[in-house]
Nucleic acid binder design. Sequence first.
RNA 1: GCCGCUGUAGCUCAGUGGUAGAGCGCACCAUUGGUAAUGGUGAGGCCGGGAGUUCAAUUCUCCCCAGCGGCACCA
Length: 639
Amino acid sequence: MVSLTFPDGSVRDYDDGITGSELALSISKSLSKKALAISLDGELQDLADPIEKNGQVGIITRDNEEALELIRHDAAHVMAEAVQTLWPETQVTIGPVIEDGFFYDFAREEPFSLDDLEKIEAKMHEIIKKNEPFTKEYWSREKAIEHFKAKGENFKVELVDAIPEGEDLKMYKQGEWMDLCRGPHMVSTGQIGTGFKLLKLAGAYWRGDSNNPMLQRIYGTAWSSDKELKAYLHRLEEAEKRDHRRLGREMDLFHFQEEAPGSVFWHDKGWRLFQTLIAYMRRRQEENDYKEVNSPDMMDKGLWEKSGHWEKFGEHMFTTETPDERVYCCKPMNCPGHVQIFKNGLKSYRDLPYRVAEFGKVHRYEPSGALHGMMRVRHFTQDDAHVFCTEEQITEECVHLNEMILSIYKDFGFEDVIIKFSDRPEKRVGSDEVWDKSEAALKTAVEKAGMSYELNPGEGAFYGPKLEYVLRDAIGRDWQCGTVQVDLNLPGRLGAFFIGSDGDKAHPVMIHRAMFGSLERFCGILIEHYAGRFPLWLAPQQVAVCTIVSEAEPFAEKVMEKLKAAGLTATLDIRNEKINYKVREHSHAKVPVLFVIGKREAEEDTVSIRRLGSKDQEVVNIDEAIAALVKEATPPDMR
RNA sequence: GCCGCUGUAGCUCAGUGGUAGAGCGCACCAUUGGUAAUGGUGAGGCCGGGAGUUCAAUUCUCCCCAGCGGCACCA
């Protein structure tokens, strides 16, 4: 007997070996028709499989969240069948479910074209219409290898080889086509439905390793209904509208051009946003006892060799040779510079923790394919800081940093923050003992702060483990921004020490931290998060003063003076255009506040206020209006 | 860096083996209009760069550069 607990809490006993479909049928005929699979203790399993243990059971239908995984997985199989039907010389590899969809990687000499996607989609519809059942067979390793070898499916042979000895080897068949697969699958191809679409073509390395051959990946999305598919495609369009590259151009914030790939040309408005962020962070750092410094943009290559950067990242550094035949590196990080500042003048334990911060512009020769708007550039400004402290101080400093980071994100409207903990990578400096210590210290700090974290094994920096702060934006996308890294290596390598209370020399611990991370990138994230509609304190242009008739111009100019005196950024629009036109244009430019001034306002010392995104107007006395805006435009940390 | 796609006016995009077109924007003129496009006129292009094929290349071929979508990378 197996004892199964249903979602409503009821518990019922069944004969051993009852299958999912028998179970569904035992509940109701209609449910058994709708059933796609079952879940047992949260794990999906084929309807045809016997239930062999007690547990929480659920019948999965299209209405369940979990159904998407099945639909997408089945769609991937059907796509692979479609591709091999159309181009039999193609080898199949893997085709997993991903967020919002699926992909399948193929090996084929000739590249797929965008037109091919339509053909594949059409073929998929045919296969789905046939509604062939998915059936499962257990094969021996030898049989599978022989099968795939005979078909010339070399990648599949590799996959079979990689399956651990003793593990079941399952082949799923739909019609004539079959694939090695862990499962589970739905009952038949027809259950996929029509809510899918192939989206894009891409190259992808076999097994994610750049030493391996490149395969052709086809991405698709799949949903339980056409309506959901449509909604998803609509979401993609909306996301595109808030693309910072597009808004940057439309709002005249910055531009890029060929002569400086991966570098931002900041226009006045964008630069104002940038400066607003720096001013904010500068206040927060002063409040938290940081010393702001500035270190050289270029330093002798020798220093970078000592720090270990040259060995690990030399290929990605900009260098220059001067007429005196010295080689300098444009700094890709600020830390070695900060160590020099720490080293200048003998430090005592009384000077610790010694916190140095710099808005340093760093230069990294990023691979061409990695560049992406402001999210990945070759020259960017970090809100970088290094805390030199004793080992005993690590925990307290990290707990403090954690509080500061979360409070800062909150001021920008990011409340949803995830922490990732990355431990030692393969390529690293320093002994295992030092790494043990650093990792333990950082872990203790997160735990002391009462935060939970995800483990990111092997992803630490070469000199130390790190915490990564990932924030979720207005449309649910994750961005990794802040980082806290404990480093017991660099100070030693670069000869930094302090005199301890016992009078002996000791190397300090260095905590690297950035909160915005890259200012350029953070600006990009803010643009996308707010879709260009910045809160007043961040908006690079806060007010547009628009006249209706030329008679109102003298008053409008007076309003401008008052705005300027109040410290608000405003532009005056006295163009010979109708008010409709002006409202439309400034709304497109996402100016948060419009002051409309006609004859009436000029006579009464008022302005008609229209806020971005609203059709309402409010007529307010000019001084009161400005006072209210000044209050609203106060940065959150100064309220 | 790798795979694929793209590069025509400030922007969005048509187009052709015989050196180019639209809409918006811009300039000028008229219009003084009350909250998301007033009308008219006009200027604006080495068709990403280089080589080749051709009588002739923006168009075809090759190389390079940049951008886009991924992969890999990300101190």
